[in-house]
């Protein structure tokens, strides 16, 4: 693999929340992680392990208790329009049409350019013909596509995805994963993808970082050097899954 630049760097990152009892609840402890430019990395862990908190800190929505996150060497302290969050619940605006949602991040550009970019990403996510439709009339999968299109419109450096397909049915989820891979291969943004689903991580990631239960620490990393599209029945696929289950501390035999 060619040498890639470090893009998102977490250094000694910890986060704790004060509680009524006065004892601080530690959510993340001493996370060191370097995500490379153009990498699709999955952060895998049980519910409540702090992986969403990690993403919120990287996105600039929350401040760490200690340690830091930097992107391209610059410390993150606020949200940035070129680093886009794709939310778990639907973050697109229900009061605006697909088109108006997609142009949100590029509203300052001249009209012609806006039209070109918006149409491009709408076509890319397969929503051609739905430009004037309101989210209420779209299925869950289509709404999530709008969210992805809105993110892609700003040509983001980094995309944060917090269990973005969690609310979809299992078939739609599979489709959305392969669509994501297709889009990622075409545009190559850096993607930090949070999930608690081992299969999802193995299907998507170039590298999976496994978090332990609270307080979240990095329990281990598993690189996945399998080309896309991945054969879900191959022995390599199975062995990666077993390795991840081991790191999560759960048996894959139930």
């Amino acid at each position: 693999m060619t040498e890639r630049r470090p893009k998102v760097v977490f250094e000694g990152l910890s986060k704790s929340f004060p509680q009524k009892s006065g004892v601080r609840l530690s959510v993340l402890e001493d996370v060191d992680l370097t995500v490379e430019e153009g990498e699709l990395i999955c952060l895998l862990g049980p519910s409540g392990c702090g992986k969403s908190t990690l993403l919120n800190i990287a996105g600039g929505f929350e401040a760490p208790t200690s340690g830091s996150v930097s992107i391209d060497g610059v410390k993150v302290d606020a949200p940035h329009p070129r680093r886009v969050f794709v939310f778990q619940e639907f973050g697109i605006f229900p009061w605006a049409s697909v088109w108006d949602n997609v142009v949100l991040g590029i509203r300052a550009l001249p009209g012609e350019q806006q039209t070109e970019i918006a149409q491009g990403v709408i076509d890319l996510v397969g929503l051609t013909g739905f430009e004037r439709t309101y989210p209420m009339a779209l299925s869950g999968g289509m709404k999530q596509r709008v969210e992805v299109a809105r993110a892609l419109a700003v040509s983001p450096d980094v995309i944060y995805m917090d269990e973005p397909f969690g609310a979809l049915d299992s078939l739609t989820r599979l489709t959305m994963r392969s669509e994501l891979i297709r889009i990622w291969e075409e545009r190559r943004p850096t993607i930090l993808f949070v999930t608690h689903d081992v299969d999802e991580a193995v299907q998507l990631a170039e590298r999976v970082v496994v978090f332990s239960a609270r307080p979240g620490r990095i329990a281990g990393e598993v690189p996945i050097d399998l080309p896309h599209p991945r054969d879900l029945g191959s022995p390599e696929y199975g062995s990666v899954k077993n390795r991840l289950y081991e790191l999560l501390g759960v048996s894959h035999l139930i």
């Binding site: 929505f61 949200p79 969050f85 939310f87 619940e89 973050g91 697109i92 605006f93 009061w95 949100l104």
Partner: peptide, 26 residues
């Protein structure tokens, strides 16, 4: 909703624009 507020923050919507595009319609 917090998600809509964060969406607005993420895409740099602020000031009068925030009222017009997010607060009022929401």
């Amino acid at each position: 909703s917090l998600v809509h507020q964060r969406s607005a923050m993420n895409f740099g919507v602020s000031g009068i624009d925030l009222f017009r595009r997010v607060v009022l319609p929401a």
